[in-house]
Design a protein around this nucleic acid. Sequence first.
DNA 1: AAGTTGTACGAACGATCGTACAATTAGTTT
DNA 2: AAACTAATTGTACGATCGTTCGTACAACTT
Lengths: 206, 206
Amino acid sequence: MDAVKVDGRVERGEQTRRQILRRAAEIASVEGLEGLSIGRLAGELEVSKSGVFAHFGSKEELQLATVRAAAAIFVRHVVDPALTVPPGLGRLERLLDGWLAYSEDRTFPGGCFFYAVQAEFDARPGRVRDSIAGYAREWNSYVRETIAAIPEIADPDQVAFELIAFLEMANAQSVLHDDPLAYSRARAAVRNRLAQAADAASTTRR
Amino acid sequence: MDAVKVDGRVERGEQTRRQILRRAAEIASVEGLEGLSIGRLAGELEVSKSGVFAHFGSKEELQLATVRAAAAIFVRHVVDPALTVPPGLGRLERLLDGWLAYSEDRTFPGGCFFYAVQAEFDARPGRVRDSIAGYAREWNSYVRETIAAIPEIADPDQVAFELIAFLEMANAQSVLHDDPLAYSRARAAVRNRLAQAADAASTTRR
DNA sequence: AAGTTGTACGAACGATCGTACAATTAGTTT
DNA sequence: AAACTAATTGTACGATCGTTCGTACAACTT
């Protein structure tokens, strides 16, 4: 127990901050981090514009905080569940299924948050882009390591590239064309690619 | 020869219009179609804001015209070259190579124009989104038909999904991380997937 | 030469953007 | 109860947004 020193004021502040960031991430997944305006955010949350602003001090800090908040949600929905499965093919499958569910269930209303903001910031300089690129790298590494833990699969880098490509393609297609079939295609592609990797391993072995 | 009736005024108008749209497509590939502002466009081209505006009548029309202009450039760089090759595996390979070159050579400074604007508009309603979705459908269909012309390959829909996923992934990774290696991975993925399809065909045949 | 058409311009519009700062309210400490 | 602190608000700012309008000028028609 360390529930000492709970200042009701900062407690309240942190709560509104969380509400702001949750809404911000939702908006940004649809309209982008630039489409996210402080005034609009304040209007939708029924608080004052200066109240929102005061929490972050600048729009860039709001964007950075939004990315961090979205990353936390991503980890909770996609990464954590896979960690309950022991390393190996099972964990990888859980990870990929988790990602597809995270996208298909519209955890963010605009589909995958990072797909949206990645495409928005990939070609411009700045701290927001760097932050997004950092999280993207982490995600790539994590998928690669998860694959690397399966000795049957050679070239985890290449396989990670292909599997992530299927996931992002499913998200993109399903959002743009309102077509849930894209997820079936991605699942089939993943299944096929993993089967191929296993085949190659057994062929090499003999 | 039918060079009759060349009105010097409309000729001049069309030329500035082309210049506007070329620059607009460049900007939009980096900053998005919303990041594209009429005032900025006018500033960079050293013409008046009202002059730019007069050509389109509204920002939405400017965005639509920009998408059309970008589509024309895409067709010229990717689709047309493949049409010089007879239908079959050769044409497909030419098409995919052409796309990767179009992205890698930065025909648009922000990488593939359609990757950028697709992610920007995929989750909002409106005519711009519909236009982008239409072009995306055309592209999907064209790739699928090109594959379908190869009798050895079963399930052109699925294969098109996977191949396009590799292309987009290469574009995304290379732009975000400034990593040209992504294109090698995509080429390897394409090669592998086509080899697998051919293998499956020969196995079925016997 | 006179009249018409098409492009481009400059100035101004209301709205909204991000930001600044002083005033106010709510909660904690003395 | 008074003093203090943190979260929130209201008001205002300069800049930029998309858009409108009247005008200037070059090019074409008669």
